[in-house]
Nucleic acid binder design. Structure first.
Lengths: 343, 343
DNA sequence: CTGAAAGCGCTTACAG
DNA sequence: CTGAAAGCGCTTACAG
């Protein structure tokens, strides 16, 4: 079966290729009778314009890039996995295809080049990034080159850049977490922070600290540990906390739920009961949190809404519509059983 | 900043476009001195060949399609979400990009056409399908057109079709499930089947039945119910079972873990304790199974291996290497706490 | 080892 | 309303 092209369709329909193109693209300046005749030939021969020709003639690809920066084991985390699905679904709802890729990091020249090539080759009309460190040179470079870039959890000092679209968590969740614990009567609070290269982790940290200062709660030595966004990092951090602290806190505020799950595992293992001896609270709304024993109390985000916002605004930017370049998503306290009132 | 093309690179390097192309594509018949000179100009000007030109000249896109057939709410299920990640990771490991899309169904002409267009436009070199009903006309059509198609859980009668690549669950898991329950002393076994349009569900069903016959275990009226692959369908099926059966079974064999989680929820709600009153066993190895109360006993599959096999063989077919067109993946019994020995 | 030339398939101002 | 023509950027036999 020979591949059919627009020249052939034109010949069979007795029109020029220009007209075939007009019909294919749904332009209005084609009389119905001509349109129908051409459509009939197109349908009969199952003609679909080749992407290569369309691209070369200057059409957009209708494809959005999705780049996930993660060190190799995304599929281990259910929350992370769901991001893929949210982005794909939201792109599809906007009529875009999604070209997805995973990179172990952004610091390696090879990885950066891989992403850059995809943009430069014009495979995609724009790209979404998840897991990028704040102030990533690659993102700045792509933005400087005029590429449309949408980034999850990213802060850019210059608000006037119209081709950098971001979505962020609200900035005061950290403070809300501490306020909540204080409201339950806790005064001995330990903090397990996240990766400070992430904008949100930094803001959550600042929130933790500012709220503790506001409530005049001292931060004891050994009660602030840095971890990451994995369960294992939380597990290790909690071990470290238990080993180094002279006294145990009554509550632990954790940067994120994945990490908090690890904290709970470490406490379990040490025979420390949650929340009787130590309350644990996370942030994010990890889907596994509700199935934990005890179910995890957390400040939850609507990740679907978050990605809907990011994807739709990025696509709007591609289509040269005016957009808000950033949006902050609010949290919702989900009280389950991992925190208790004391004192 | 004007976009730079191969003509310009050729001019700056003092060679022809042919030579630029040879360098870009790493052909051997270019002396090192020329290669270096050209490379230098390419690097200085950050030249990347445009996809459109390459495609038009007949190169492959290096892109694999990934089509997920699901009625709208994939992100609700963690196991399903992970499929996306496995496929993306495995495609990347083979040097391919992934173009992913979600469709609510395969029966609607609009959806079928959407997929068909992506193939016909030559956006992708081949495509992977997940969630397709067995004997799907669209897949047969694509195969007939010579497209390279990889399908998860699909059976095709004609083994000689070299462009249809499949990966399947082993066919006897259903029998193993019943054998296991019988081994624990169960004689009163109910079955909750899956969607019979899926090849695996049909095979699991056949396995259930054949093993029960082999053990001379009668299938009581009302002890066989059809469900789907969702938790909710399992919940509903179990309610139905409890409502219609004259007597309750001592064990329920469920087509898949998602569904089994729903069965457990329904039993919980009815105050029936697992496994004291009824044992429940699933198939798949759903990540949530281990966090259930009680943790779910199941026959588990290595989904990463499964998708690694599917993706790598599909890519091999694209690159015209010889491949096994199908592979069956074995299960592994993971005994947790939802089944008990009786009698 | 290298260049000139052909070829890939489409869209879009432009002219009528 | 419609066609002829220009233009988009690359690769690959072919000839030398």
């Amino acid at each position: 079966m020979k591949k059919i092209n627009s020249t052939e369709i034109a010949r069979l329909a007795g029109v020029s290729r220009s007209t075939v193109s007009r019909v294919v693209n749904g332009y209005s300046n084609v009389p119905d009778s001509t349109r129908e005749r051409v459509m009939k030939v197109i349908a009969e021969h199952e003609y679909y314009p080749l992407l290569s020709g369309q691209l070369l003639a200057g059409k957009r690809s209708g494809t959005l890039g999705f780049f996930w920066v993660s060190n190799g084991t995304i599929h281990c985390d259910m929350l992370s996995s769901s991001f893929f699905v949210y982005v794909t679904e939201n792109a599809a709802n906007n009529g875009y295809l999604l070209l997805s890729g995973i990179l172990p990091n952004f610091t390696d020249e090879i990885n950066r080049n891989w992403v850059k090539r995809i943009f430069m080759q014009e495979r995609i009309d724009g790209g979404i990034f998840v897991g990028a460190s704040n102030n990533s040179p690659l993102i700045d470079e792509l933005v400087a080159k005029g590429k449309i870039v949408g980034v999850f959890d990213y802060h850019h000092p210059d608000v006037n850049v119209s081709n950098l679209i971001t979505v962020n968590f609200e900035n005061d969740t950290g403070a809300k977490v501490i306020d909540y614990l204080v409201g339950l009567g806790h005064k001995k609070i330990a903090i397990i922070d996240g990766n400070m290269n992430n904008y949100s982790s930094l803001k959550r940290h600042e929130g933790f600290i500012s709220s503790m200062q506001r409530h005049n709660i001292p931060l004891h030595r050994g009660w602030m540990i840095y971890a990451d966004v994995t369960e294992q990092s939380g597990y290790i951090a909690c071990k470290e906390l238990m080993a180094s602290a002279k006294e145990l806190p009554t509550a632990i505020a954790v940067n994120n739920d994945s990490c908090a799950l690890g904290v709970c595992a470490a406490l379990d293992e040490a025979g420390i009961s949650i929340p009787q001896q130590i309350s644990v609270i996370g942030i994010d709304g990890h889907p596994r949190g509700r199935y934990q024993a005890p179910p995890l109390t957390t400040f939850e985000f609507d990740f679907n809404a978050l990605f809907r916002s990011l994807v739709s605004r990025t696509i709007a930017a591609i289509e040269k519509e005016p957009v808000e370049t950033t949006e902050f998503i609010p949290s919702k306290l989900t009280e389950r059983c991992s925190c208790r009132r004391i004192g």
